[in-house]
Nucleic acid binder design. Structure first.
Ligand SMILES: [Zn+2]
Ligand SMILES: [Zn+2]
Ligand SMILES: [Zn+2]
Ligand SMILES: [Zn+2]
Lengths: 155, 155
DNA sequence: TCTTGACCCTAAAGCAGCTTCAGGGTGTTT
DNA sequence: AAACACCCTGAAGCTGCTTTAGGGTCAAGA
């Protein structure tokens, strides 16, 4: 099948497929000698579905590569996989904890202004003007396995 | 004061300060005619503290710019500010909800493999091979105020 | 005085995971 | 033959910085 058909089957764009190929997630497709178009078969479809499933679970390309590697080594132990998923669950939980703290702080901030008035007297602006109070809790310096790092976005 | 002193006062790097200037968050500093070094005063310090406070609350540059604008218009209504904070709280809550769903799915996935065995028989890989089940809930197509968009990272 | 080290400057690239754009072929239909 | 859908590559854009490269400035010590 051509790239457009594959894209529709998986529910992604052709650009994303080409990007995955350039990233080494998807094996380069065979090319039609006549026009240089990429040709895909069922194994590509399956691999792409796997990749997308991992992406909707917010795994990074690095994490996915490790799983893909395990997938083609049927005789290896799946320890690695279990550990990777466990670690990734931690990534998600850690990010949620951060966001919960954020939410609390934001709601407190919001409570500083209940009636609408001029910005001169706005409690929100006033609170934002103060420096950040250190929570005095040292950052745990999370030790990631180098090569499968994931951060669940901390913009 | 010079940029290095300012950076230490605020607790960020000089590169970040220069970046904020290039982004239009911080007004360009006066330059020492002798050596072209940036010179800052107290108002820069206050503005930077404000910016950092907003950043630790995960606001985007766009959101911060709106607040900064309100800050220099003391006679305007603070309606805008309240709405922006409310919206931003929604950003955080929406992202948390996404992560909670993720966590549930990941824990379910993890439960597919309790004993270590070969990847051939790994329930995790098996489940990842299946296509994504649509939760059939149409995405709410959140209507953002154009110009203050924020996404709390959805990598 | 010369040199070392701390500090300052700019411009550009890198990170993650794509999306979008520019510029140009291919292939089928009307 | 023109229109339109589809394919190709390479590069830039997005976000919020960090890092690197390459090069001035300035104080103090040898
Ligand atoms: Zn992860
Ligand atoms: Zn207010
Ligand atoms: Zn927001
Ligand atoms: Zn297993």
């Amino acid at each position: 099948m051509k790239i457009g058909v594959l894209a529709k089957q998986v529910g992604i764009t052709v650009e994303t497929i080409r990007y995955y190929e350039s990233e080494g997630l998807l094996h380069p497709a065979l090319r039609d000698p006549a026009n240089n178009y990429r040709r895909y078969d069922h194994s590509h479809l399956e691999r792409l579905i796997f990749i997308r499933r991992c992406r909707t679970l917010a795994m990074t390309h690095n994490e996915i590569k490790i799983l893909l590697q395990a997938r083609v080594e049927p005789d290896a132990s799946c320890e690695t996989i279990n550990e990777l998923i466990d670690e990734h669950i931690h990534h998600v939980q850690a990010r949620m904890a951060e966001l919960q703290i954020l939410e609390t702080q934001l709601i407190e901030l919001r409570s500083q202004c209940r009636a609408a008035h001029t910005t001169r007297d706005c409690g929100i602006l006033r609170e934002l003007d103060h420096p950040i109070e250190e929570s005095s809790e040292a950052q745990p310096e999370h030790s990631h396995v180098p090569g499968s790092q994931c951060r669940i976005e901390r913009h």
